[in-house]
């Protein structure tokens, strides 16, 4: 018991102890996606779907939940079922066998929903482009709102992209601006 407490005190708070995402790589998120994300305000529940990645993207998604990145502090929660999700994060090129399950997951996720393609493979099939085993990038099968490039993108980059996504104007600020006359 005392050992555990001692260890916790000794370790302290590690959240935020990571190098910032490399500068010069700004994530541009389409305004339409920001508008969609506006609905979820400060809370976003994500469901991750792997459709054929090399598992490096999964490891970085897992890293987001560790004490260093701790995305729960940003209001982002990872759900265990697509039925609980606001956004789907899809990694990897869509393989012949995963095309069906991906479409099922998309159907199961309640509307309104966002689809985030994570990593180069999900965006353009990367190194696996053209193979008989791959049916195409994610946006060939389901509509994609946000693209986060990288092989794999660092957790800091994923956080930056998600922050950018949720920067959209909230209804409250729009209302506030309208009445304060301060655009």
């Amino acid at each position: 018991m005392f050992k555990i407490l001692k260890k916790s005190f000794k370790t302290g708070i590690v959240t935020g102890q990571y190098p910032p995402a490399p500068a010069g790589q700004k994530f541009s998120v389409a305004p339409t996606a920001q508008k969609k994300a506006e609905l979820f305000r400060k809370s976003l529940t994500i469901r991750e779907v792997d459709t054929g990645s090399c598992n490096a993207c999964e490891m970085e998604m897992n890293a987001l939940a560790n004490p260093v990145y701790d995305i729960e502090r940003l209001g982002i929660h990872i759900a265990a079922s697509p039925r609980h999700a606001d956004a789907l994060v899809v990694t990897g090129p869509v393989t012949v066998s995963m095309e069906g399950p991906l479409k099922d997951v998309f159907k199961t996720t309640p509307n309104p929903k966002l689809v985030i393609a994570l990593g180069d493979c999900a965006i353009n099939c990367g190194i696996f482009k053209g193979s008989y085993g791959v049916t195409g990038p994610v946006d060939q099968h389901i509509p994609v709102d946000v693209r986060i490039p990288g092989c794999p993108p660092r957790p800091s980059e994923i956080i930056e992209a998600l922050t950018e996504l949720r920067k959209g104007v909230t209804t409250f600020t729009r209302w506030f601006r309208k009445f304060s006359g301060n655009p």
Partner: peptide, 9 residues
């Protein structure tokens, strides 16, 4: 499920 055809690539 994730067979991407690596050996053929």
């Amino acid at each position: 499920w994730k067979h991407r055809g690596v050996e053929k690539l």
